[in-house]
Design a protein around this nucleic acid. Structure first.
Length: 158
DNA sequence: GCCAACGTTGGC
DNA sequence: GCCAACGTTGGC
């Protein structure tokens, strides 16, 4: 039973890896996913102990900036039930939750960001879903090999 | 700010 | 079930 690897996107203006580092226990719930494909991953696939590449999207330099570990498996995103919450969704209820989230804890911040450009230039990373045209999925599967490669590229000394 | 790609909604 | 309209994502 090996741990799976994932890439999770976040807009740094909304929630950056610095925000994760500053959070209590350097842990956060990955709230606000409102896409069914990503929801299915959160609910059914992502397990405690899985590794996560933390990716900054929609910013000046889109890049992988660190890693995290899943510390709590999929559970209902209760923010969807709160009418005053930004992520409110009337479709979802405590009886029949539509949306799920996991908790992740910071594992490492890279010495240097591994930019999208750098990922694109690396032949070992050519198959990453991140590079597929039009791909907007905010949670993506990553192979162990791809994960390890990016972690290596994020180190100051290689 | 632009725009391509994609997901969702809703009329029919 | 089809598909046009609309909203969102995210690189550039």
């Amino acid at each position: 039973m090996s741990r799976s690897c994932w890439l999770m996107k976040s807009e740094p203006t909304t929630f950056s890896i610095d925000d994760l580092a500053a959070a209590p226990n350097q842990t956060t719930c990955w709230e606000g996913v409102r896409n069914y494909q990503a929801r299915n991953l959160l609910r059914d696939e992502i397990a405690t102990g899985d590794r996560v590449l933390f990716y900054h999207s929609a910013c000046a330099v889109p890049a992988c900036v660190g890693t995290a570990v899943v510390v709590r498996e999929g559970y209902p995103d209760h923010h969807a039930w709160d009418p005053r919450h930004h992520y409110h969704d009337p479709k979802s209820s405590p009886e029949k939750p539509t949306w799920y989230m996991v908790d992740i804890r910071l594992e490492s911040r890279f010495d240097k960001p591994v930019s999208l450009t750098e990922v694109r230039q690396d032949p070992l990373l050519a198959d990453m879903p991140l590079l597929r045209k039009g791909n907007r999925l905010s949670i993506q599967p990553v192979t162990k090999r791809q994960f390890d490669r990016i972690v290596r590229l994020g180190k100051a000394q290689q």
